[in-house]
Amino acid sequence: MDTLVVLESSRGSLHRLSKEAIAGAKSLGGTVSVLTIGKDADSIAQELSGVQLDEILIVKNEYVESYNADGYAEIVSQVIQSESPKNIVLGHTYQTRDFVPRVSARLDIPFIPDIISLSESSFVKQVLNAKLNASISSTNDQVILSFQSAAFSDESLEAGGSEVRLLNINLDSTIVRSKSEDPFQEEAGDVDLESAEILVSVGRGIEKEENIPIAFELAKVLNAEVSASRPVVDAGWIDSFRQVGSSGSNVAPKLYFSLGVSGAIQHVVGMKGSKSILAINKDPDAPIFEIADYAVIGDVLEIVPKLIEALENS
């Protein structure tokens, strides 16, 4: 086996990043098999029945019906040992971050996380708040890789079929030491960021809570919804259900109009699919400008009130 992709279930369906990870795995060359674990394994295998893969490996176990770090670390480690894939590939999700380092430490296999692209024999990862790219390589026989959102497109997946193989894995009840309760969602209000046509998004460059209303005023004249980056939510200036990014919503509006958003990588992964990005920021080096279609280097507090005025008059 050349490459094994460890899949993730997102509330019963295949996680979008897992599908992109399969596309990433294909670009490494060689055969690609996938592993799906738990109570959703059959439906996820079904979802992939039209995709060209070597094998779909399924593990079911009473202690790992749904995700827990102890169980996943054990199962994935056992499968790596028995199947000996050269590359172990995953989407760079919160779940990956939760258990994959345990596999890496247990088997002494390096884990190169959050990869955005491949360049010859090395992997490119953003560092220093996405201000620089780093090329990382490994001399080890086996390597674990996780791919950032949108690093690969799942549209490139070749149609075809695969063999399904059920793996028998014995787990001792003492393996799962932690007790995981069911995931839950908190109050989301009536705001639906994911279907908004235009988002006015606020970042830390708005400077203080008293300035937040200008974002809502701009949103009003544009008939837009207001979203925010994490620092603004953490400061308590805007409700958490308006957060865009790896821990918030994943959006792709017609226009993403950002006000003082720096473009930290955790934010960008949640919005880089936007059709147009117009960014205002005082800092000419803000990483948001690398993905912006229109870059306005200037002060939000000076420009936006004048813009609202102009839009009201036009």
């Binding site: 560092v127 620089l132 790219n133 990382i136 490994s138 993905i291």
Partner: peptide
Amino acid sequence: LQSMDKVSIPQTSKQ
């Protein structure tokens, strides 16, 4: 087991 070989300033492909 892994090494950082080079860092560079990201080249934007976007116009």
